[in-house]
Amino acid sequence: MSTPEVRIAVEDPATDDVVALLSEHLADMHATSPAESVHALDVRALRAPHVTFLAARDHAGALLGVGALAVLGPDHGEIESMRTTPAARGRGVAAAVLARIVDLGRERGLARLSLETGTQDFFAPAHRLYERHGFVACGPFGSYRSDPHSRFYTLALADA
């Protein structure tokens, strides 16, 4: 999705402003969750061939937010590294990035998208975002294990 206010495109996560936002993201994850419960990806992991990394920018090119789609298998994808800049929060950027990731999943023929997020109050806005877009709670998927600090969501793309 791209609008005059927000352009979402595939980018290299090693771009300086993206690295800064991802560093902030990782710092917040470590500040709110025990280390063994932090599953956020670093730049190296986000550059893997099975990951499509997206950046949302305004008309002047300023970074507004990021997100990624990691393909887990022939019919299953995972949403990774959703984050908006402090200045962009509450402006619909996260919803636009999420919508683009869902569209990418459909374009790639995936049957469902899943994600892991935290359980602390810090993550309440993320929970509301995902639930508002049709994601439902589910159990651990892929290599995740049950963890009191993790909440899992999934979306059947045929239903969305």
Results as ranks from 00 to 15, higher is better:
4 P>W: 02
7 R>E: 05
9 A>S: 11
11 E>P: 02
14 A>D: 11
14 A>G: 13
14 A>L: 08
15 T>F: 01
18 V>Q: 03
23 S>R: 13
24 E>V: 14
26 L>W: 09
26 L>K: 05
26 L>V: 15
26 L>E: 15
30 H>C: 15
30 H>R: 11
30 H>I: 05
31 A>G: 10
35 A>P: 12
35 A>M: 10
36 E>C: 01
39 H>A: 04
41 L>G: 04
44 R>V: 10
44 R>I: 13
45 A>E: 10
47 R>G: 05
47 R>Y: 07
48 A>D: 11
49 P>F: 10
50 H>T: 09
56 A>M: 02
57 R>D: 00
59 H>S: 12
59 H>R: 15
59 H>E: 08
64 L>K: 05
66 V>W: 01
67 G>F: 00
68 A>C: 08
70 A>N: 09
70 A>C: 14
70 A>W: 06
72 L>E: 12
73 G>L: 09
76 H>S: 03
76 H>E: 15
77 G>Y: 14
79 I>Q: 07
81 S>C: 12
82 M>P: 02
82 M>W: 06
82 M>S: 10
86 P>Q: 12
86 P>C: 03
87 A>G: 00
88 A>D: 08
91 R>V: 03
92 G>N: 00
93 V>K: 00
97 V>P: 05
101 I>F: 03
103 D>S: 07
105 G>D: 09
107 E>Q: 13
107 E>W: 09
109 G>W: 13
111 A>V: 08
112 R>S: 07
112 R>H: 08
113 L>E: 02
113 L>Q: 07
114 S>I: 08
115 L>A: 13
117 T>R: 03
117 T>C: 00
119 T>S: 13
119 T>K: 00
119 T>Q: 04
120 Q>I: 07
124 A>K: 14
128 R>K: 11
128 R>H: 08
129 L>R: 04
129 L>V: 02
130 Y>A: 02
131 E>R: 14
131 E>G: 05
133 H>C: 04
134 G>C: 05
134 G>M: 06
136 V>A: 11
142 G>C: 04
143 S>E: 15
145 R>D: 10
146 S>P: 08
147 D>T: 02
149 H>G: 12
151 R>K: 09
159 D>C: 01
159 D>M: 08
